[in-house]
């Protein structure tokens, strides 16, 4: 098991956002967490990446306990979190944004090589290399956010709503690239409100409702579940 999450309980002050969440990601998988707005998807990712602390349970990565480890350590271990809303550094250039993604790495030649690989996946970033992050379009910002996330050469990529606010054509493109990244050997934990797209590329899926996992299975099983069809796929 690459990532094992067991019985997380996370609070924002008095708000009990995660109420005993458990799931896992195998090496090479795309796993998706789907659920409505406010279900706790982002909170789950933030807890894994060390921005939030859990009161109970544990998170194991490659068999190692990483519960409540500081964010910078998590990145060094090979988990990269592309946050909801992209969170591009607007006053930094595309290049500088990518360099920040490689902050935990030191060899400039290796970093340069990774950057070339990111440009191979996102050729548009290369065209805009000296442009400020804040001047990019929404789709380009999503590409930059993902490219930046890849700069640390993660084993596990956490993607939070990569399709948010994008046109259907761009969504298609982003999801194609997610699959490509996965085929090149990166495992992916994908959080989406766009359940239809997420289920179409994922291997397995979990459904989150108000801080609890209410359903899990292969993407196909979940997509065919009548409740999911009614609530998330609009069928």
């Amino acid at each position: 098991m690459l990532l094992e999450v067991h019985n997380l309980n996370v609070y924002y002050g008095a708000i009990h956002a995660l109420q005993g969440i458990s799931f896992h990601v195998e090496e090479g998988e795309i796993v998706t967490l789907i659920g409505a707005n406010g279900a706790g998807k982002s909170t789950t990712l933030r807890t894994i990446s060390g921005l939030l602390r859990t009161r109970t349970g544990y998170i194991r990565y490659k068999g190692r306990d990483i519960t409540n480890t500081p964010a910078q350590e998590i990145v060094k271990m090979g988990i990269s979190h592309v946050p909801e809303g992209r969170k591009i550094f607007a006053p930094l250039t595309v290049r500088e944004n990518l360099l920040m993604g490689a902050y935990t790495r030191n060899d400039p030649n290796e970093i340069q090589r990774t950057m070339e690989r990111v440009f191979a996946s996102f050729p548009r970033l290369k065209e805009r290399i000296n442009q400020l992050g804040g001047t990019l379009s929404g789709g380009e910002q999503q590409m930059l956010a993902m490219g930046r996330g890849l700069m640390s050469r993660p084993t596990l990529l956490l993607l939070d709503e990569p399709s948010m606010g994008l046109s259907p054509i761009l969504v298609e493109e982003i999801f194609r690239i997610i699959q490509e990244i996965n085929q090149q050997g990166t495992s992916i934990l994908l959080v989406e409100q766009n359940a239809h797209m997420a289920l179409s590329i994922a291997h397995r899926a979990y459904v989150l409702e108000t801080g609890r996992i209410v359903l899990s299975g292969t993407a196909k099983e979940v997509a065919e579940n009548p409740m999911v069809k009614a609530a998330y796929l609009g069928v």
């Binding site: 979190h81 946050p83 969170k87 550094f89 006053p91 920040m100 930046r148």
Partner: peptide, 11 residues
């Protein structure tokens, strides 16, 4: 610009 995002970079 954004401290949270910076932490996600491993800064």
């Amino acid at each position: 610009y954004d401290r949270q995002a910076a932490r996600l970079m491993g800064i």
